[in-house]
Design a protein around this nucleic acid. Structure first.
Lengths: 139, 139
DNA sequence: TTATTTGCAAACGGTTTGCCGATTA
DNA sequence: TAATCGGCAAACCGTTTGCAAATAA
């Protein structure tokens, strides 16, 4: 398991204080806020500012884009407007259409079918995005 | 098979000349441009202007949003930036990461699994979005 | 030292909106 | 006629960028 900082070094991304701080916030994200956490840039800036209030939002934008290009983060445009980020670890999302809550899940069977479909169409699957939208079943 | 105009009447959407023109362009979209057509607002405005050059882009924005709320159109944010629209008829997309070409497909097995996953998580599936990204296999 | 990075504020680009005359039902 | 709509231009909002000072390697 390598940290964001380690990945940066592998990719030759310069490690500045600001980037280290942002990396730290991102790494802690799930532990502190749970697996339903998909912060937008504004929210990240707020969290980062608690550690270092000199970091500008422009830097957060630049860093988040950099990390995305390095494959460290994935960007979501769940409903467009504001992009939201999380550490890249390949799973899907079920979005509660009433509360907006986001549940993460993985399903090997669906993945297998996705590969088959792509192949059938003459393509090699490189990436995928699956979002389910649903409402809670009350018991 | 009911037309966009019919759907508007069902939903109580007032049928103005501008909306009729835009509806016409949207209906013809697939026949004229093929199933890979997912025009953005700018492109729609261009096409619409050929029939009536008095229609402003603000009207296209308003109409497209109206049609989306009425369930007539679906909005895609494939890579964010510009939203793209097409008539709502439930299928998925495979996007060629090299050319940007969009292939539409349906897969009943995947859909079945999606329903099961949602149910397992305690949700009733209301909507879904599946995008595959791939590169062409050369033979 | 030298290429990169940052903070700031201004620019950008897609989208929305206030106003008011025009149009639909 | 009354409610709604459309055109125009200005506002909006998330994001990007040019510049000069600061910093990593």
């Amino acid at each position: 398991m390598n940290t964001i900082e380690e990945k940066c070094q592998q990719k030759g991304v310069r490690l500045t204080d600001q980037r280290k701080t942002i990396a730290k916030i991102l790494s802690e994200s799930k532990e502190v806020y749970g697996s339903k956490d998909h912060p937008d840039v504004d929210e990240l800036h707020k969290r980062v500012s608690a550690l270092d209030d000199k970091i500008s939002i422009a830097t957060v934008y630049r860093t988040v884009k950099l990390f995305e290009e390095a494959g460290i983060l994935i960007k979501h445009d769940f409903k467009a407007g504001k992009a939201r980020y999380e550490i890249n670890d390949d799973h899907n999302h079920l979005i509660d259409i009433n509360s907006g809550e986001i549940i993460e899940f993985v399903d090997k069977d669906i993945e297998k079918l996705q590969n088959e479909v792509a192949k059938k169409l003459g393509y090699k699957l490189v990436d995928h995005k699956l979002e389910l939208y649903g409402s809670k079943i009350k018991k």
